[in-house]
């Protein structure tokens, strides 16, 4: 019996190898999460212990966005829907019709964002995203007009030129504390 078996198994059957490999492959396919780290890039202002000095700004150049603890939006004193924020911000910065209540020029425009400690992070990021998007769209338009291509395809010098024309000034005030709950 044993003798016969020995003679038979002169070669290992590799036919099931594919099955085993497939099994492993599927396991890794299922468990793999190709982690892609993406996010909104932000630069914080440096910390200083002295309170910031009061600068009086022409109110026409300030675009104040407030987000309260109920995740509601107040833009320049008027409740606004988040879907309108991007287009309104763009209009404020570029001021195509030279209205007297919008920015003198894009270089003077300041976007001021203030939130409450009770604001949901999701809402805050959504608002931040819309403000960033407004600038990105303006940069794209300017880049297309000047160089005939999208902003992301420009080289460093060209990017700088566009950004000098429309600088991103987003100032974040210390959050208020009305509705923090945990």
């Amino acid at each position: 019996m044993a003798k016969g078996k020995n003679r038979m198994s002169s070669e290992i059957n590799a036919g099931s190898m594919a099955d085993i490999a497939f099994l492993l492959l599927i396991f890794f396919l299922v468990t793999t999460q190709i982690s892609e780290d993406r996010g909104i890039l932000v630069k914080l202002p440096p910390w200083s212990n002295e309170p910031p000095e009061d600068i009086t700004l022409n109110s026409r150049n300030v675009w104040s966005v407030l987000v309260n603890a109920n995740n509601e939006l107040l833009v320049r004193g008027t409740p606004t829907d988040i879907r309108e924020l991007r287009s309104k911000t763009k209009e404020f910065i570029s001021n195509p019709r030279k209205e007297s209540d919008k920015a003198d020029s894009p270089t003077k425009a300041i976007v001021s964002l203030k939130n409450d400690r009770g604001t949901k992070y999701k809402t805050y990021l959504e608002v931040y995203n819309e403000l960033q998007a407004a600038y990105n769209e303006l940069w794209n338009e300017s880049a297309n007009k000047k160089f005939g291509k999208d902003y992301e395809f420009l080289n460093t010098n060209q990017k700088r030129e566009v950004r000098d024309e429309i600088p991103l000034v987003l100032s974040e005030a210390e959050p208020t504390n009305f509705g923090e709950e945990n």
Binding site: L41, L44, G118, Y124, E174, P175, E180, E181
Partner: peptide, 22 residues
């Protein structure tokens, strides 16, 4: 909520780590 996020941001500013990615 933003309370704890603000605290972390303040801590980062104090530590001189200003480049962030949400």
């Amino acid at each position: 909520t933003m309370g704890i996020v603000s605290d972390v941001k303040t801590a980062l500013r104090k530590a001189g780590q200003l480049k962030l990615n949400y």
